[in-house]
Each structure stands twice: as C-alpha cells, then as structure tokens.
Simulated assay, not measured.
Amino acid sequence: MGMSRSLETSYLKRKRPEVDTLGLVDAERAILNAIKSKKDLGIWVRDIKQETKLTDHVVNKSLKSLLARKLIKEVVNIQYKGKKHYMADEFEPSKQVSGGLWYVDGNLDKELVNVMKQLCLRCIRIEKVATLERVHEHLKKQQVVNFEISSQQVYEILNSMVLDNEIIEVKSTGLWQYYPIPIGTVCYRFDSGPVVAKGSKVGAFASIPCGACPRISLCTPNGVISPSTCAYHTKWLNIDF
C-alpha cells in the first residue's frame, strides 16, 4: 500500500500544472507569451488558439484570468472590428491597430476631423494655394486643440479632403499665385472648375504643360530650364482661351 500511495503521489505531482513567479500555469504562460510576441500589433483570439494548440475552453479561461490580473488588455483593431484582439498591458496599440489620432475606441472621431478640415479650408482660402508645411504652420498657430499635430496627420486630413473632392492636389508651376512656391512642390487649392469660353474649351490650369513636364523638378524662374525660355509654355500662353 505504501508503494502504491508513493507512485500515486508522484503521478499527481507530474500532472499538476507548473506555476511560475507570476502565479501563471502552463496554458496561461503560453498564451501570454504568444500575445507579447505581437507587441503593439495585438493578436486575434483565433490566432492565439492556432499558435498555442490549446482548446477553446482553456484559451477562454486563461484569457479571463490574464485580463483579471491586468497582464493583457482587449483592444479594438479598426481593420477587424468584429474580431477580438488582445495585447500585453505594457504596449500601446500601434497606429495600424488604433487608427491614430483620428480614432477613439476604434471609431472615427468625426467631430475632430471636421474641425481640422475647416481649419485647413480656412488656410487654403487665405493662401489661395498652400503647401502641406504652410497648412501645418497655420494649424499650430490656431491652437484650437490641446495636443500637437504632426505633419503626417495634417497630410492625412488633406488627403481625405482631396479624395472627397473638397480640394485638389496640384504641383507648383512657379507662376502667378504659385510664384512663392518652388516649382514641382505639391500644394493644395480649391478647384475653380473649367473655364468655358469660345466654345467650351478646357480651363487654362487644366491644359498647362508644366503638369506633364518630365523636367518640372529642374525648372526654376531664372534657371537653364525656366518658364520664360520654355517653348511649350510660351505656346500655351499664346493660346486664345
């Protein structure tokens, strides 16, 4: 009997899950490691199951335990809103996951975006033609928000406005209102629409040859290549619109 009890005790010890310094059992530790390995990208619960090869019951129970201990957190991934994602508590969701400044809890902050759009429109209305840097400077001076906006975030707003046909993206020709802006620089303005005169011809800006010129980046007002010495540009100026 003594030998039998000894064998039974030994077997139970081998079957008992090992507990680490955090008080986690094997399954919890394996799941935590899988989540940590994804850092600030997080991981979908189905991927956790595939990586750890654990059953649904064990994974779900372990996730609840890890959440209760605040070792992990559930995050909203804007690309997969219907799928539960988990991330180690020490990481903050990457922009790819959270959507960045313009999202709150996975939802677009429409009110903030609309405010920023109106500020951008005001700048373009004042400047007539504005570069990304100029719009960025304008927004920083307004101080209507209590956080710092990056140039990339301003670009995201301007790009969304271009896609919504609220403004158009053009390249500076170095002429007229473009004169202060280096030739070839990307800038933004309102779409004045086609100019219809003498038989529905296309507007002047739409037909300007500079937009399709392969040497636009080398063209400067007083350079070897310049609007004043360009045969195509001179011909365009003489067109009777």
Rank of each mutant, 00 (worst) to 15 (best):
A27H: 07
S160L: 10
A34L: 05
Q96K: 13
I168P: 02
P209S: 00
T9C: 10
P214E: 00
S150T: 15
D26E: 15
W176P: 00
R215D: 12
L63C: 05
A197Q: 09
V19K: 04
L119S: 00
K64C: 05
L32Y: 15
S10D: 05
L121N: 02
D164R: 12
T52C: 01
F205T: 14
W176R: 01
A34H: 03
K84R: 12
I126M: 08
N146F: 04
Q118L: 13
E133Q: 10
A204M: 07
A34Y: 03
I239L: 14
I208S: 08
D240A: 02
G211I: 04
N60K: 06
V19H: 00
S6N: 10
G99M: 09
T173G: 11
P227G: 10
D20T: 15
A27M: 07
P93L: 03
E127A: 05
S226Q: 08
D40M: 09
V129A: 06
L158A: 05
G42H: 02
G223R: 07
R29E: 15
A30D: 07
A204G: 06
P182I: 00
K70F: 08
C213A: 14
E28Y: 01
V145Q: 03
K171T: 12
D191K: 06
I78A: 00
D26G: 09
E90L: 13
Q79F: 13
R189N: 02
Q79M: 07
V186G: 01
G174I: 03
Y188V: 01
L119R: 01
S217L: 05
T234G: 11
F190P: 11
Y11H: 10
T131C: 00
G203T: 02
Y103M: 03
R125M: 12
G106K: 07
E111S: 10
K64V: 11
G82T: 02
W44C: 01
K201D: 06
T220I: 04
P221K: 14
A68K: 15
I48L: 13
K39A: 15
K140N: 07
I43K: 05
N60F: 04
R69A: 14
S228L: 12
D47S: 09
L218A: 10
S172V: 09
P209R: 00
I48K: 06
K70D: 13
N222G: 07
L119W: 00
L71H: 03
I181K: 03
V154T: 14
E111Y: 01
N238W: 10
G99F: 11
E8P: 06
T9S: 15
V59L: 07
K171V: 12
Y11P: 06
D40H: 08
D47A: 03
G100P: 01
S160W: 08
D89L: 15
K171S: 08
S228P: 06
A88P: 07
T52W: 02
K140H: 12
E28D: 02
Q79V: 07
R16C: 03
E74D: 06
V45L: 14
K141N: 12
G99L: 14
Y86D: 07
